[in-house]
Amino acid sequence: MPGNARRATMAVLLAGTVMVAPALGDESAELVIDGQVFVTRTEAPEHMEYVPEIISGWVFRSAETQAVQMDDFDNPGMLYVDGGLEEWTNVDGTAGESCASCHGDAESMAGVRTQMPHVNEDGELWTMEDYINNCRTERMGAEAWGWESGNMLNMTAMISYQSRGMPMSVQIDGEAAEYWEQGRELYYTRFGQLDLSCANCHEDNYGNMLRADHLSQGQLNGFPVYRLKWAGLGSIHRRLRGCITDTRAETFGRGSDELTALELYVASRGNGLSVEAPSVRN
């Protein structure tokens, strides 16, 4: 079993060097927020051939980072959720509408995050950002928000938060199949001068140390995520771009077809994990 081999390696590492220890949290810890228990480990979806169990990135973080997410007050991502709630009822654009004019309470967005990205009525694969901007430009007569703008992050955080605790369940068959295949292709394609695919780290080596970083499975269930390194919230595409840049490759743009397809595939590798947005990571 690769898993056993990995654990054995970890044990040797831990025994061999004390310095590794502080970076690691309690891997058997349970994520509970306000009494709500989150699924951070579960059986992998059928389509994953090489990974027996899918694990939330929360499990791989230090005890301190884990603790920040376990308290909604300490979690700085909740500031963005508050901002999104304000924006929800804010009238903008020529049509004189707010999000709430059509959608009612923000709670109506429950479940949306679990299905993103999603194939729209025209057969195109859209991320949550695409849906939001379509609403703004087509229905509200307002300007589209930048992918990584404050307003967009507030809104994706708030909408995602409505699904917190619900299991990820993106569609990968039917109209989505073609995009999913494209995403899978990208996942296993080596990029950059370092010649690394997503799988090299997040499938073959999760649980191992990459220098000071405890490699996770690269799950998306916590996004948008508050990264301590960023001192702010960031989108899925920002993270994907970061990873690809780290392979010393020229990367794809935010909102590009490639990253959207990759987002779908990576999200499907987390089907069954609880939505944690806004999560806290290193």
Binding site: F73, M78, L79, D82, G83, G150
Partner: peptide, 9 residues
């Protein structure tokens, strides 16, 4: 703009 305080006591 957009500065939001949070307090818990």
């Amino acid at each position: 703009e957009g500065v939001r305080p949070r307090v818990r006591v």
